[in-house]
Design a protein around this nucleic acid. Structure first.
Lengths: 124, 124
DNA sequence: ACTTTATCCTATTAAGCCGATAGGCAAATA
DNA sequence: TATTTGCCTATCGGCTTAATAGGATAAAGT
């Protein structure tokens, strides 16, 4: 995504081009780009001169959203995750769990950082 | 560790006791306690009336250190980890990597939180 | 000394996750 | 209609880690 954000124009960039510049296997990159497209970050064009392009401006893409799609939960443990919440198997009460609040604090802090960074921010 | 920190006296607590209170398999708990002892957090006593006890006062146990031992790296990616550093396979230069700095910021922030919390803090 | 109680230790299993790959399909362009 | 390029599903292999098993070792009490 940083590669596409650095492009001047919005014409599609081919998988092969990105793969070469970023030192990634073309096939693996393909699966990543597919994920990003299904998540709504990228548009694609098939056939000759096809490729991928950013849907929104880099300034409007929050790193929080990118992280969730590519890296999964931002929380360190599922029981404090907003989007991937899972109750701890044998925890009787989250409110009295000593670790829970600590993890909440870390999550909120990380979230603040990611929310305040756009794709445009990190490539500059 | 929170269980032991809550004890009034420093007499050893048996694995079976903790396992029961915390809803963990005794055998699995055993392996965790062993890890904590080898890491220098816990002392142990064998034989009748044996068990585990905290080496230091809960106020003197930083969560950073506990986390590293139990959860591994605090950094979200190895290339910004202080204690478990690993260079990204195909990254030509960390200084120009857009993600690197962002991850550094998150790591420092998380680290600050963990450094400022002791075991005593989180059980209160 | 012996028995009981408890930790110590190594090895192993089982499951889930994820990077990575393979191979064919579908659509757009010229 | 041939070529180019993304679309899609399935799968493999390695790694990690929760969890278990079984016996060795040491301390305490009698």
């Amino acid at each position: 995504m940083t590669f596409m954000a650095k492009q001047e124009s919005k014409i599609p960039v081919q998988i092969a081009t990105i793969a070469e510049h970023e030192n990634i296997s073309q096939k693996y990159l393909e699966s990543i780009l597919l994920t990003l497209r299904k998540a709504g970050f990228l548009g694609s064009k098939k056939g000759k001169n096809g490729g991928y392009y950013l849907f929104k401006n880099p300034e409007d893409i929050r790193m929080t959203d990118v992280m969730r799609v590519l890296e999964g939960p931002i929380a360190l443990v599922p029981c404090v995750s907003l989007n991937f919440y899972e109750k701890c198997a044998d925890c009787p009460d989250e409110n009295t769990c000593a670790v829970h609040n600590l993890m909440l604090e870390v999550r909120d802090n990380t979230l603040t950082i990611f929310n305040n960074k756009s794709l445009a921010d990190i490539i500059s």
